[in-house]
Design a protein around this nucleic acid. Structure first.
Lengths: 84, 84
DNA sequence: ATAATATTTAGATATTTGTCTAAATACCTA
DNA sequence: TAGGTATTTAGACAAATATCTAAATATTAT
């Protein structure tokens, strides 16, 4: 839960998730969408991965990232029980 | 949105919200529930307040805090659009 | 008025975090 | 095998954050 909220607590990471919602992208494509260096994006992707919010798959020279929305169910549940 | 995620990105603050979900509490009562000094709790309450996640009301010498769940709707929506 | 209680504000400090540059690793192609 | 491209790892640094102690503010009660 901690990892999840930590991962979501950054505008860049939230935008990465919004991008990945539209389509899978390679690390380079993701980096190109931001005004941040590739190593920094790589770090953000690592945090998203540790939180299980994205998965990655090696495609030869490229690494393609996909969003994993199932883990968001946990956040949803936490918020919903707070609301009830 | 940033303020919201920031406020939620702390275990103590999330626990405060869980406490306030059960009943309204004074700052002192909230502080007593944690192994953290009162000034630190006061600071957490301030952050929750800025994020509009809690409201406060002066009751003479005491300040009573209440949870405001309506603002959580924003987080819910953000997550739901990510899932759909 | 004075003392006690409740809470916040101010200021300091250690830790975490986001970012960068430089270097390493991995893969592909000629 | 040599060179180019894609990505990550390592190390450094500034900014943000959570915490603390001490002091300030506000209210109540004697």
């Amino acid at each position: 839960m901690n990892y999840l909220f930590k991962a979501l607590n950054d505008e860049t990471r939230r935008q990465i998730l919004e991008l990945l919602k539209e389509k899978n992208m390679t690390a380079g494509e993701i980096a190109d969408a931001f005004n941040i260096t590739k190593p920094s994006i790589s770090h953000h992707l690592d945090i998203l991965k540790r939180a299980d919010l994205v998965t990655s798959e090696k495609d030869g020279q490229f690494i393609t990232y996909s969003i994993n929305t199932t883990i968001l169910e946990d956040v949803l549940q936490w918020i919903l029980t707070l609301k009830k």
